[in-house]
């Protein structure tokens, strides 16, 4: 018994050290974000000294020179907008194709399953052409693209859940005079809440971090997302402002960590659910 307890303490200590090593990369970037840009590449692992310390000036230049806050705004807009639209449209579609048995329904289901496997490179060029033609190259238009490209996983997961809802509940509602729309929003919707959360989290993680789709679809002279700005800061030839990049990396990571810590349970559940379905 005593040995088991000491073993458990040894485990805790070992994992505390491992955990610290695990988050070290973020801490190192955080430390460097307070250094003068000249010193970052020279001595990335040293703590800032009086000579190298610049306070928040890197953050100021990331925000002022590279429009980082605008990018945060657009990223929030695109992510929230797309996720809400995806949740609403795909859950309705999934309910319809599970309840109405027809060739169309099974074809739609099969196509959604196929679309989950297709790598983005397969459609990236033609998708950006189509988006350009239809003038969907704005943060409003890209929501439609995300609905189309993200529909596969969402429809698939919603269908899996709808199948487990007993038909009798809906039948009772419709016999009592509910229209299909009212049945969906007052009966089916609330039952599907856990799936809404799982799908919402999976799609949020994907869209928030997505780089290539918005980069190819959006008119990037006007609208940039966080990932695009970070890539732009580093990738644009000429002077690379390492300080501003460090600050941008930290500002990109902070919202993610806050989001993660505030709804950690749902995230882990959602990930597990998505993995099993996918």
């Amino acid at each position: 018994m005593k040995m088991k307890r000491t073993l458990s303490w040894v485990g805790t200590i070992v994992f505390t050290i491992l955990g610290l090593i695990y988050i070290a990369p973020i801490i190192i970037v955080l430390i460097n974000s307070f250094k003068n840009k000249v010193y970052i590449n020279l001595e990335p692992f040293k703590l800032p000294s009086a000579e190298t310390w610049t306070g928040l000036s890197n953050y100021a230049s990331a925000i002022n020179q590279y429009g980082f806050l605008d990018a945060v705004g657009w990223t929030v807009f695109i992510t929230v907008g797309s996720v809400l639209v995806i949740l609403l449209c795909t859950s309705m579609c999934a309910w319809y194709i599970t309840r109405v048995k027809s060739t169309f329904s099974s074809a739609m289901y099969a196509l959604c399953a196929v679309s989950m496997v297709v790598p983005f490179q397969m459609v990236m060029f033609t998708l950006s052409l189509v988006a350009d033609r239809l003038r969907l190259n704005t943060p409003w238009g890209i929501i439609i693209i995300y609905l189309g490209f993200g529909a596969g996983l969402a429809v698939f997961m919603f269908c899996g859940f709808v199948k487990s809802i007993p038909l009798e509940i809906e039948e009772a509602a419709m016999i009592d005079g509910c229209t299909p729309l009212r049945t969906f929003f007052t009966i089916v919707g609330p039952i599907m809440k856990p799936t809404y959360i799982s799908v919402g989290i999976l799609e949020t993680m994907w869209i928030w971090n997505d780089f290539l789709l918005p980069y190819l679809v959006l008119d990037i002279n006007k609208y940039k997302t966080i990932s695009i700005v970070v890539q732009y800061m580093k990738g644009s030839y000429g002077r690379v402002d390492m300080g501003a990049i460090m600050a941008a990396l930290i500002m990109a990571v902070i919202p993610v960590i806050i989001f993660y810590l505030s709804c950690q349970k749902h995230i882990i559940k959602g990930v597990a659910a998505g993995a099993v379905k996918g």
Partner: peptide
């Protein structure tokens, strides 16, 4: 129920 998703799916 279906057209919004279907239309976006066709485009996207």
């Amino acid at each position: 129920f279906v057209f919004p998703t279907l239309a976006a799916f066709i485009i996207g």
